[in-house]
């Protein structure tokens, strides 16, 4: 498992595209949108910062799914999936090995973007333990869904398109771009079915209201359960994924 994880991490950090999507583009978005909305008199500076920084962090965390799709589809097309299946490594160790590096990357991404918020915009962080656990839950769900999608999709392009629908559609409906309170009631109800909503509400609770673990347990539970569902779908889809692998 560790061998797969180390190799995946080594490969992934060589990918310049990942650095752009994960760190550069989110920083550009945060700077641009804080500049635009900090002139809005209806919202305090703190409200703007606590909406935009966690909001865009969550949205861009979902883009890790693209890197996951590319990694898995490449493995399938090069026959690496079948080759690894011929070794004594078990299926669940294979998945954990592939999963772990992406969880680490998302956690670093969250730390960098929140750190940027603290240094540049004086973003309050609230309870550090609650913040870390919620970030872990967010990393778990985006990578869990990423793994499910990576195993199911037939092509890289299909995976990229679906990620954009999930990331951008979820950002719009989940209240990442603007608070859900400003949206019609129907949309507000749809929001509650999206992990983006629960992640953002959790961050707001910790950052704005100094909430602790007890205040965000439901948010974390929903994110973890959704992530687990992704993991289970990936595991169940593995035999088909293996059959499709070249060898």
């Amino acid at each position: 498992m560790w061998a797969i994880a180390r190799t995946e991490l080594k490969k992934t950090i060589q990918d310049k595209g990942l650095w752009f999507w994960t760190f550069v583009l989110p920083v550009i978005f945060i700077v641009a949108f804080v500049a635009i909305f900090s002139g809005d008199e209806s919202q305090s500076y703190k409200e703007v910062v606590t909406q935009i920084i966690p909001g865009y962090t969550i949205m861009f965390a979902f883009f890790i799914m693209i890197s996951m799709v590319i990694a898995f589809v490449k493995d399938r097309e090069r026959g690496m999936v079948a080759r690894i299946a011929s070794t004594p490594l078990s299926t669940h160790h294979y998945f954990f090995g592939k999963w772990l590096p992406f969880i680490i990357i998302v956690l670093i991404q969250i730390a960098v973007l929140f750190g940027f918020g603290v240094v540049v915009y004086d973003l309050p962080l609230g309870n550090p333990l609650a913040l870390i656990l919620l970030s872990l839950a967010l990393a778990f769900i985006v990578t869990g869904w990423g793994m499910a999608m990576a195993v199911i999709v037939k092509t890289e392009n299909m995976g990229i398109a679906l990620t954009q629908i999930l990331a951008l559609g979820g950002a719009l409906l989940g209240g990442l771009w603007m608070p859900v309170e400003f949206m019609p009631e129907v949309v507000q109800n749809i929001s509650k079915a999206l992990p983006q909503y629960w992640a953002l509400q959790g961050y707001k609770e910790v950052i704005l209201s100094s909430g602790g673990i007890a205040d965000i347990w439901l948010n974390m539970l929903i994110l973890v359960l959704a992530g687990l569902a992704g993991g289970v779908i990936a595991l169940l889809s593995y035999p088909r994924f293996l059959r499709q692998s070249r060898s």
Binding site: T7, K10, K11, Q14, R78, G79, M80, A82, R83, S86, T87, P88, R246, S247
Partner: peptide, 17 residues
Amino acid sequence: KQQIGYIPQEICLEETL
């Protein structure tokens, strides 16, 4: 599996490593 060394038809290597 521990007794077997499988050499597939495809070249299964991590090319960037």
